[in-house]
Design a protein around this nucleic acid. Structure first.
Lengths: 241, 241
DNA sequence: CGAACTGTTGAAGTTCTTCAACCGGTGTGG
DNA sequence: CCACACCGGTTGAAGAACTTCAACAGTTCG
């Protein structure tokens, strides 16, 4: 009996984990009781395009795990300037701050589904579990490493290099999700890309057409096709000219 | 007897902790035995200006804890372009990567002293200790949050705003260490500042003199004095014009 | 149908870069 | 000892990259 119940719990937790993407790893390290506790606090939410998940300055009450959709994460300046820090996909976690308020805004780009947990309870569980903490460390360290790459990109790349690097890294993250190999779907707007790369929408648009005229990419509805893999890679890794 | 030994161990660990800055927090959570184990593997090293602590691509064999000096941490592109990711001061830790090779180069600016531990052993101890892991999480999360601020700075600030933000944040980090309140010592070169802000040395130099003519700062030997706190703060936080 | 929105393109303007010269300090070898 | 090279920093002039302002086309939506 107990065994069956355990197995069922496990099954339930696994179904949940599948729904919650990266949560998978974290859940794997929790005890059956802990999983059940967290599961009871779980809430599923949907977000329409342009809908906020949370905003800079909000109390950080819940953490989110995306199971579907695309989210832009950004910072705003009082005068309206915006820096897109990153895009989140299914499997990514949002709102994992240690501070009591969010320093970032998260906003759905595509119709998005996420499950969420009270941040305090989530932290309490993770904080008491070695394996979960280790996994958390990995996730944050990885984010930090890509943040360093982004600094290089923002500080030292030309517009063309930024665009090529963005396209390739975005494709790498979406690998498997997109249909064809060379086709890269771009659900975000030109403004999103501009604010991600530290450019203006006009420069993004012009650079796209310049890359197309140079036959590096082909602009198609809803995205681009990478026509010259090699040239794109050269631009993105900013090899010596 | 055992008690005395324990007390002595404790005393030793505390002296070491003091020498190792932020290590303090991490050490606080280790058992006496663990402290002793780590202490036996401890090595102290000094670095002359321009001396490498470790380089991008090196095997990540040791982690460092600065007790004195200033270090620049940067990424290099094959064509020589450089992005300074940050500066490390006494109390900061270096080389805390989860990957087997360093993605960043660390290089002394001032004469620097650090103590170091084998990374594998350090990780093993931290990974087995809840409190240490939590603290590590805090440290990395904090780094990630400032990385987000740096992205905003690199992507959306003007040269003047970048410089003002840099001066104020640098002063805040050095608070207490510097002599006067408004004097900001700048041990790093113009090139370091330029590569930190995504500018050229000429622009850094020109912006310094422009800020001086505008009576926001005063350039003095080895640093600057912030003459108009309010204006500097306005520039740095990029308030609406 | 018109309004609003996204994206593209052109022309002009600004900011920052590049190239070049120069200055003062430091170190070095004839 | 001094001439000379070198290095870090500043400044000027010219140039390039990106932005700003403006117009326009194609879509979506009420």
């Amino acid at each position: 009996m107990a065994l069956v119940e355990t197995v069922e719990m496990r099954g339930c937790a696994e179904r949940q984990a599948a729904r919650c993407g990266v949560c998978t790893d974290l859940f794997g390290s929790l005890s059956v009781g802990e999983r059940g506790e967290l599961d009871r606090m779980r809430r599923q939410s949907s977000f329409a395009p342009k809908e906020l998940v949370f905003a800079q300055g909000d109390a950080a009450t819940r953490v989110f795990s995306l199971s579907k959709g695309v989210v832009r994460i950004y910072k705003l300046l009082p005068d309206g300037r915006r820096q897109v820090v990153g895009f989140a996909l299914a499997g990514d976690m949002l709102g994992l701050t240690l501070s009591e308020t969010h320093a970032l805004t998260s906003e759905a780009i595509e119709p998005t589904v996420a499950c969420s947990f009270p941040r305090a309870a989530f932290r309490r569980l993770v904080d008491g579990n070695l394996a979960a903490l280790r996994r958390m460390n990995q996730l944050v360290s990885q984010d930090l490493a890509t943040a360093h790459d982004r600094m290089m990109m923002l500080g030292r790349y030309s517009a063309e290099e930024k665009m090529a690097a963005f396209l390739l890294s975005w494709r790498a993250r979406r690998r498997g999700r997109d249909s064809g190999g060379k086709m890269v779907a771009l659900p975000m707007s030109r403004r999103d890309i501009a604010d991600y790369l530290g450019l203006t929408i006009e420069t993004v648009s012009r650079t796209f057409t310049r890359l197309e005229r140079a036959e590096v990419i082909e602009i198609v509805a809803g995205g681009v096709r990478i026509a010259d893999e090699k040239r794109a890679l050269q631009l993105a890794s900013a090899s010596p000219v």
